[in-house]
Nucleic acid binder design. Structure first.
Length: 565
RNA sequence: UGGGGCGUCGUCAAGUGGUAAGACACAAGACUUUGGAUCUUGGAUCCCAGGUUCGAAUCCUGGCGCCCCAGCCA
C-alpha cells in the first residue's frame, strides 16, 4: 500500500479524524487496529476493514495494530490465527511488532472488573442463563432487575474471586455490569462482563476459567493499546454506548468507536458461519478453494494483493448497507493482471489442425511478444510445425453472422505465425464430430515478414502438437447463480443457489513449451482466454492451472445477443 | 408499541444551500496480428409530500421504505 493521497478517496471516517486532528483530541496521534476473532478464515470483507484501518494509519503517519480478539476459547483455534496472520501479511498490511491478543490483557481486564465492583457498578449474578434471558425483557418491554443486583461490594468481590478460582461450575454465575434494566438499548440492560468457561484457551491454557465478554474486552483492549479510532462494522453501533460506559466508569484512555457498512459482494456470501458450512459439507474443497471469497481462496485463484487493495479503495466507505457488484472486483483484477502478466498460448479444448503444405519435418521458432502492455518484457520463441491444435470454439462448420474465425474455406491469422485457410474437415464416422482440420498456409504472411500486412478478420491462438505440454486447467465461475444467494423460496436456504457449474475441470489441455518449469503461483495470460495461475496441486509431471478470470469476451456477447433475436 | 442506523443512475459513491463528480455495469462507435487492451459517445433532479429561501440532494415538518439489536458469540 502507498500513501498516495491524491488517489485515496476521502470518507466520513477520515473526516472525523481530520476534525480530531484539528482539535488535537488525541494529541495528534492516529492509531488504528484490526481485531479479528480467530474462529475462521479472513475474506474480502475483512480485506476492506484491513485496508481501511491500515490505510488510515499509513496516510496519517500513525500506527496500526493487529490484535486477536480471543476471548472465547470454545470457538477459537491456533490454525485460524496462523492463516489470519499470513493473509494480512500477504495483503500488504504491516503491524511491525504490534501483534497482540486480548488474552494478553486478561489480568488487567480482571483488575478493571474488580474496580467496577468496588465502585458498585458490577455484581455477581447467580441466575441461570435462562433466567437472565427471561428477565432481560423484550424490544418493547423493560427487563427485571436480578434479585442479586444489590449484593454488597464485599460479597461481590468474594464471589468474583471464587469464580476466578474455579469454585463454581460453568454457567452457574456471571459478573454483570449494573447499568439500567429499562434501557431501550438491550446492551445496557446489565450486560454480562464475565462468564465461567472451563475450557482450555489456545494461548493461556488452563490459567483462566472465567473469560471476558466481547464488550468488556474490546474497548478496554483498545484503551490499553492507546488506539485512537476504533473502527468496526454497523452492527456494533448499538454497542457504542456500552463501549463508552465502561471506559468512562474506568476513567481510562477513551478511543472513539466509528462504525461503517461491511462489504457485501454479489454472487457470493460473506458470513463466516455459512462459509464454514460450505467447507464442512463439502460444497467446496476447503477454505482456500479458489471459488471462495476468502483471502486464501482468492490468493490460490490468482488474485493479486494489489488488485484487492485497489478494489477496497474504489468501493468507498459509508454507512449504508450495500452490495458491490462482483464485476468491480473482477475489473480491478483484470486491470492489474493486464499490466503485469506474460502472454502465452494455450489450447483448452483442442482441435487438431494439419497444415498440408507445410514441410513434414520442419519446425520454426517464431518470435512472440511477451506483453504488449510492457515492451521491456521482451519476446520469446514459440515453435511452429505442421500439426497444431487450435481451440474447438474457433471453428464452425456452419459459421453464424459475424463469426470471424475458422470455417470451411475461411482464412484466419495464427497469432505470431501465418495466415491459414481451411481446405477440408475430417469427421468421426460414427459421431459426425469434427476431429481434424486440413489447412494450407501462405508462406508470404509470416508475422513480421514483408508481406505480413495482409488483413484477415480473425486471429487465433494455437500450439504446436508435438511441442506442447499437457496440462490440467480448472475453470471457475461464480459460486452462486443469483446475485443475492439468500433469495430463495420459503423453507429453502442459500445452498439452493449454489452454482452447479462453478468448477469445470479440463484434464488435457495443451500449453506452449515455454511454461516448462512454471512454479506454483505463477500467473500468465493465456491469449484470448483469460488469466491463469499455476495451482499448488501441480506436480513435476503435470501442471495444473486455475483460471483466475476470463478476458472480456465480445464474441460471447454478440452470440448471446444473436440468440435473443 | 422500544432503541440504534440508513435512503443520490442497474451497482457502488461524491456532493456539507448556488444550480447532480467518478467508477463498475450497460449501449453505440473507433482502433486492433489477443473479437484482449486502449479511445470516444450516451444516460439519474437526488424515497414521498409539504414548507423556508432569489435558489435545496443539501435546512425544517410530516410520512414511507430498508437494515441492526432480546448469545453466559464476536
Amino acid at each position: 500500500m502507498n500513501k498516495n493521497e491524491s488517489t485515496r478517496p476521502s470518507d466520513f471516517i477520515r473526516e472525523i479524524i481530520d476534525e480530531d486532528l484539528r482539535t488535537n483530541k488525541y494529541g495528534g496521534r492516529v492509531h488504528t487496529r484490526f481485531p479479528p476473532e480467530p474462529n475462521g478464515y479472513l475474506h474480502v470483507g475483512h480485506a476492506k476493514s484491513i485496508c481501511l484501518n491500515y490505510g488510515i494509519a499509513l496516510q496519517y503517519g500513525g500506527l496500526f495494530n493487529l490484535r486477536f480478539d480471543d476471548t472465547n476459547p470454545s470457538k477459537e483455534e491456533i490454525e485460524y490465527v496462523k492463516s489470519i496472520i499470513e493473509d494480512i501479511r500477504w495483503l500488504g498490511a504491516d503491524w511491525d511488532d504490534r501483534l497482540f491478543y486480548a488474552s494478553d490483557y486478561f489480568e488487567q481486564l480482571y483488575d478493571y472488573a474488580v474496580q467496577l465492583i468496588k465502585k458498585g457498578k458490577a455484581y455477581v449474578d447467580d441466575q441461570s442463563a435462562d433466567e437472565i434471558r427471561e428477565t432481560r425483557g423484550t424490544l418493547t418491554e423493560p427487563g427485571k432487575e436480578s434479585p442479586y443486583r444489590n449484593r454488597s461490594v464485599e460479597e461481590n468481590l468474594d464471589l468474583f474471586g471464587r469464580m476466578r478460582a474455579g469454585e463454581f461450575g460453568d454457567g452457574s454465575r456471571v459478573l454483570r455490569a449494573k447499568i439500567d434494566m429499562a434501557s431501550g438499548n438491550l446492551n445496557m440492560r446489565d450486560p454480562v462482563m464475565y462468564r465461567i468457561l472451563k475450557a482450555t484457551h489456545h494461548r493461556t491454557g488452563d490459567k483462566w476459567c472465567i473469560y471476558p465478554m466481547y464488550d468488556f474486552a474490546h474497548g478496554q483492549s483498545d484503551s490499553i493499546e492507546g488506539i485512537t479510532h476504533s473502527i468496526c462494522t454497523l452492527e456494533f453501533e448499538d454497542h457504542r454506548p456500552l463501549y463508552d460506559w465502561y471506559l468512562n466508569e474506568l476513567g481510562i484512555h477513551h478511543p472513539q468507536q466509528i462504525e461503517f457498512a461491511r462489504l457485501n459482494l454479489s454472487c457470493t456470501i460473506m458470513s463466516k458461519r455459512k462459509l464454514l458450512q460450505l467447507v464442512e459439507e463439502g460444497h467446496v474443497n476447503g477454505w482456500d478453494d479458489p471459488r471462495m471469497p476468502t483471502i486464501s481462496g482468492l490468493r490460490r485463484r490468482g488474485y493479486t494483493p494489489e488488485s484487492i487493495r485497489t478494489f477496497c479503495d474504489r468501493i468507498g466507505v459509508a454507512k449504508r448497507d450495500s452490495v458491490v457488484d462482483i464485476a468491480l472486483l473482477e475489473h480491478c483484477l483484470r486491470e492489474d493482471l493486464n499490466k503485469r502478466t506474460q502472454r502465452v498460448m494455450a489450447v483448452l479444448r483442442p482441435l487438431r489442425v494439419v497444415i498440408d503444405n507445410y514441410p513434414e519435418d520442419q519446425t520454426e521458432e517464431l518470435e512472440a511478444v511477451n506483453n504488449p502492455e510492457d515492451p521491456s518484457t521482451g519476446t520469446r520463441k514459440v515453435p511452429f510445425s505442421r500439426v497444431l491444435y487450435v481451440e474447438r470454439d474457433d471453428f464452425r462448420e456452419d459459421p453464424p453472422k459475424k463469426f470471424f474465425r475458422l470455417a470451411p474455406g475461411r482464412e484466419v491469422r495464427l497469432k505470431h505465425a501465418y495466415i491459414i485457410k481451411c481446405e477440408s474437415i475430417v469427421k468421426d464416422e460414427k459421431t459426425g464430430e469434427v476431429v481434424e482440420l486440413h489447412c494450407t498456409y501462405d508462406p508470404q504472411t509470416k508475422s513480421g515478414g514483408a508481406k505480413a500486412a495482409r488483413k484477415v478478420k480473425g486471429t487465433l491462438h494455437w500450439v504446436s502438437a508435438s511441442h506442447a505440454l499437457e496440462a490440467e486447467v480448472r475453470l471457475y465461475d461464480h459460486l452462486f447463480v443469483k446475485a443475492n444467494p439468500e433469495d430463495v423460496e420459503e423453507g429453502s436456504d442459500f445452498k439452493a443457489n449454489l452454482n452447479p457449474n462453478s468448477l469445470e475441470t479440463l484434464a488435457s489441455c495443451w500449453i506452449e513449451p515455454n511454461l516448462t518449469g512454471a512454479k506454483s503461483g505463477d500467473r500468465y495470460q493465456f491469449l484470448r482466454l483469460g488469466y491463469f495461475c499455476v495451482d499448488p496441486d501441480s506436480s513435476n509431471g503435470k501442471l495444473v492451472f486455475n483460471r483466475t478470470v476470463s478476458l472480456y469476451d465480445t464474441w460471447a456477447k454478440i452470440e448471446k445477443a444473436q440468440r435473443k433475436r
